[in-house]
Write a protein that binds this DNA or RNA. Structure first.
Lengths: 236, 236
DNA sequence: TAGATTGTTAATCGATTAACAATC
DNA sequence: TAGATTGTTAATCGATTAACAATC
């Protein structure tokens, strides 16, 4: 036995692998829904849109959850990945900025089934405070502190206009939020130790435009970006 | 002079660089709006949330658009990057699936200013066909072919429920769309030569949950993912 | 035992970074 | 000329991939 505890999690999982674990989790859920009990790395890789060598390498960072000659037990592997990601319990999240996008996020049913629960919707505009979206009341942004402490919220979503994003981020950090998903265009800066991920619709379209333009120019090297960079659907 | 034409674009730009060009473009637009005419790589890097060595390396793939000892002309560099990305003219796009998210996308004003114009909103549900969103009428999905050919659309956005996504993708490809931005969870498969990018809200949250969990576990190696993987806001 | 498939190794490829010569 | 800053080199780091020994 190793000198470390058996409930060991000290192995470092590469960031590229971390970003794919949720993809594998979703693929496994899909297989389970089809009533498939066992799968090979090849089958799971196809379902997840990656190649099987990469899948096996990724899974090897978590442990040995497969059986040589047989494959993986879908339910068992699903649980192990969920545990590794940390979505065996629900994470409370707050959404700030209940405009068009905030509405869409609040109504997104996929959050609940994937480990997240929207505990509060906050907006600075008093005109929105009457509203109830997806069963949750829109509250003043000033309620942030109370909400975060009441529900022990660690994750915040920014869906405000870009001009408000940095102020909102500062306030989120002040009240103890340590992970932020930012939908507002532009860079927000946060202290060390606070995680930020960014979703930017125009940037995604511009990346597509670049490749589209190369194709239009008849460039023989214009490749399918789906096979090359982040979480895209293409296989290879 | 090189043996190739002077209107040369044959240099291959790494995918990681391509994904950052839109970030630089946005940062330059921000500087221009502040009335700043010239900036150093250090200043632009800060505004874009990257380090200056990476910025200069990235820009070097486009050409030599700076002046040693001085820096970059904001307006000139902005134009050069816009040209490289291909957003000096507008790209017509169609959005398929006008639910909550489709509405939010249709209303997103940022598209227009960043090189995209929504020329059609399509939905399979006849109940939605009466509606006009952001000045654009919602039309039957069957109109896809007509719309795409009328406006020479190359880019399609999928905002349908996950069950419809693959069928919609197949149809988009059939009518000649070669770039797809997919908001529906799950993998869609497309033929070689069609570019797909994917935005998945739950996956982003799950990546944050993973890091949040590591922090909670008191893991000393738990790092800020903002500094590590794709287009995130953190500087370093 | 024979066939199948994992988990791991090692080679390759691509991205990042620091340092600095070139040059304004 | 002296100071500033780019563009590029080269070293390092991390991610991907093919191949295969281990083993069910």
């Amino acid at each position: 036995m190793s000198p470390r505890s058996s409930h060991e999690t000290a192995r470092v999982i590469p960031e590229a692998t971390v970003a794919r674990l949720p993809v594998y989790l979703r693929a496994l859920t899909g297989l389970a829904e089809q009533g498939i009990a066992t799968c090979s790395s090849e089958e799971l890789a196809t379902a997840a849109g990656v190649n099987s060598a990469k899948l096996r390498k990724d899974l090897s960072y978590l442990g040995s959850y497969g059986t040589r000659g047989v494959g993986y037990d879908v339910e068992y592997l699903r649980y192990q990945i969920a545990r590794e990601i940390g979505v065996t319990h629900e994470w409370p999240v707050v959404i700030v900025g209940i405009g068009n996008l905030g509405h869409a996020l609040a109504n997104y049913s996929g959050f609940r089934s994937r480990g997240f629960r929207v505990v509060a919707l906050l907006d600075a505009d008093p005109a929105r405070h009457a509203e109830i979206v997806a069963g949750v009341a829109v509250r003043p942004f000033a309620d942030l502190d109370a909400v975060v402490h009441e529900h022990s919220v660690a994750i915040g979503v920014i869906a405000t206009p870009p001009t408000a994003a940095q102020d909102v981020a500062d306030r989120l950090v002040e009240v103890g939020i340590t992970s932020i998903l930012n939908f507002a265009p532009g860079v927000i800066s946060v202290p060390e130790g606070v995680a930020v991920r960014k979703v930017d619709l125009s940037i995604e379209l511009q990346i597509l435009a670049y490749h589209e333009q190369r194709k239009a120019a008849g460039d023989p090297d214009a490749v399918d970006p789906a096979v090359t960079f982040p979480a895209a659907g293409g296989d290879k």
